[in-house]
Amino acid sequence: MTVMTEVGTLIGRSVRHTARSVDATIVAIVLPVMILLTFVYVLGGAIDTGTDYLTYVVPGIVVLCAAHGSAMTATSVNHDLTTGMVDRIRSLPVVGASLLVGHVVAGVLRNLVSTAVVIAVAVLLGFRPAASPLDWVLTTGLLALFMAAFGAIAAAWGLFVRGPEAAGALAFVLLFLPYVSSAFVPPETMPAVLRGFAAHQPTTPVVETLRALLLGGAESSPAVPAVLWCAGLLVAGVAAAGALFRRRTS
């Protein structure tokens, strides 16, 4: 039980950080909304997906928001490492990795809130999801798993790099990952190389599964690859973060 208190205390700390760093939270919400508006009203008119473009693009924007938001964990972990907070925690009778768990879990909570805001904006613009309550629960679960996976990878990245600038760079990588997927345009329109990448990267099955959960057609969705991708990335991220945590602190 003491471990739960430790983790809970550190989650509380990270949640307070988020609530107080208003600028970071605004970026996490405003950026996806701006991208949503750009795609729907600037580019969308010229993109033919065979459906209403707003309806097509919202699941993609949600995943982009989740990926980008998860990357912020890299900066907070790196900050703790370079400012001595990690050493202070490690000299306490506390499981050192509680700090990483706190960051990742708080990141998931933060990202669930910002994606909810993005979905709300999409509804205001005319997005009409056809999801049942169960679909919403599954959507939340899949997004939380996706956010935890990318959060763990971000934590590992934050432990790997030297400074905050390099830690922040992950946000751009994760921001662009959804572009080469089915998030904004059907991958069939891409050159063969990119199409191959889009078909074999995690955001494509996650976007497709969300699309099916929110808009119907769940029975044919790639839910299994989506969950396997996220679970695999979560395991890899946790393993990498654990190894790097030991390396950077000995």
Partner: peptide
Amino acid sequence: GQHAAVDEVLTGRENLVMMARLRH
């Protein structure tokens, strides 16, 4: 440690409460 390992986003009181909670 060499750097003041205090949490700059939290208040002084919150820092102390957090540390006490981490010490169970």
